[in-house]
């Protein structure tokens, strides 16, 4: 646990970062800052302990980190090469970070895509065991993400473990193969991920169908993310697409609202409105603003409000109160 100024920032975190692992943690900027300081030994936990082989071999990058804009890419990296005291041939390495065409360009003229790769290159030169990066893809274009992932693969192929944090699960799914969501009450919750694979010739497993297990699948980039029903706050239908709402994020599902209602009603979900399927466990209040309109207020900071059809009020009451 880490408290700062009477406020609990991090709590209930139990995490082992194994060498070569690709871990992503969904958390806020403030939580990331504290986590990085704790791991790098710049901050001491209020309770609990952190075991690290050598904090000098851990580097971190936060979203505010800046570059010396007046220097060229080459001069900037040469400067850090002198700091680290290595004599690696930067000209050979620059290709892995896709920086050949801007090698002699001043950093102030570069795009966010290129600046992010420079940051990664700088940290790579130190040959750390672990790199902590906060939200590296936040302002990157699709092409920029592709090049960044290529550079990140190169970094990881050199035995460097990279742990990413971000407020957006989509970003972490692209960067990592193990994604946790941080919640102060329960600590780190693991999100189930599975790489998309071609299963057309894999009929032998088709007959295997375990009972009483259901997870909502959402396709994001080249991955499919599975959400447990208990993670979902509610599902909203927008223009015919069912959007799974988790925390402050929406994930589109290929299933229709009717399909989801049928599969999720065993897990405590209720169709409170034509466009909404709510997780009954998340309801905190029921308010009637007028005689014929009812509103459900959900738990959490955002206190989401969902409409409740008048005709379904009694049914909902029975479900909750029985």
């Amino acid at each position: 646990m880490k408290q700062d100024g009477g406020q609990v920032i991090l709590k209930n975190i139990d995490l082992e970062v194994a060498s070569g692992s690709k871990i992503g943690i969904k958390m806020t900027h403030k939580e990331s800052l504290v986590l990085f300081k704790l791991i790098t030994g710049k901050m001491v936990p209020t309770s609990g302990h952190i075991v690290a082989d050598n904090t000098n071999t851990i580097l971190s990058e936060i979203i505010e980190d800046g570059l010396y804009d007046s220097l060229t890419v080459k001069a900037y990296l040469k400067f850090f090469q002198t700091i680290v005291g290595k004599t690696d041939d930067l000209d050979k390495l620059k290709t892995h970070f896709s920086l050949e065409d801007v090698w002699k360009t001043k950093i102030k003229h570069l795009t966010a895509n290129q600046r992010e790769r420079i940051n990664l290159f700088r940290m790579f030169m130190f040959s750390p065991k672990l790199i902590l990066i906060e939200s590296p893809l936040r302002n990157l274009t699709n092409d920029g993400i592709e090049l960044y992932l290529k550079a990140l693969d190169y970094v990881r192929s050199n035995g460097i473990t990279v742990l990413c944090t971000s407020y957006y699960t989509e970003e972490l799914i692209i960067l990592s193969d193990t994604v946790y969501r941080y919640n102060q009450n329960v600590g780190l919750e693991k999100t189930d991920l599975k790489q998309n694979v071609d299963v057309s010739d894999d009929d032998s497993e088709a007959s295997f169908m375990p009972k009483r297990v259901f997870k909502v699948a959402c396709n994001i980039a080249d991955k499919t993310v599975f959400f447990s029903p208990d993670e979902i706050d509610f599902i909203e239908s927008v223009n015919g697409v069912s959007n799974i709402r988790i925390g402050n994020e929406y994930f589109p599902s290929a299933l229709t609202m009717n399909d989801l209602e049928e599969k999720l009603n065993h897990f405590g979900f209720y169709r409170c409105h034509r466009s909404y399927l709510v997780n009954l466990q998340r309801i905190s209040e029921l308010i009637s603003y007028s005689r014929n309109s009812y509103t459900l207020i959900l738990k959490g900071k955002s206190k989401e409000k969902l409409p409740l059809s008048r005709t379904r009020l009694d049914e909902l009451r029975k479900l909750i109160e029985n």
């Binding site: 790098t40 000098n56 580097l59 971190s60 990058e61 936060i62 505010e64 980190d65 800046g66 570059l67 010396y68 804009d69 850090f80 700091i83 680290v84 700088r122 130190f126």
Partner: peptide
């Protein structure tokens, strides 16, 4: 102001 000091200080300087 330009957030370069943290980078330097976390780079073994």
């Amino acid at each position: 102001e330009k957030n370069t000091l943290r980078v330097l200080m976390t780079s073994s300087v």
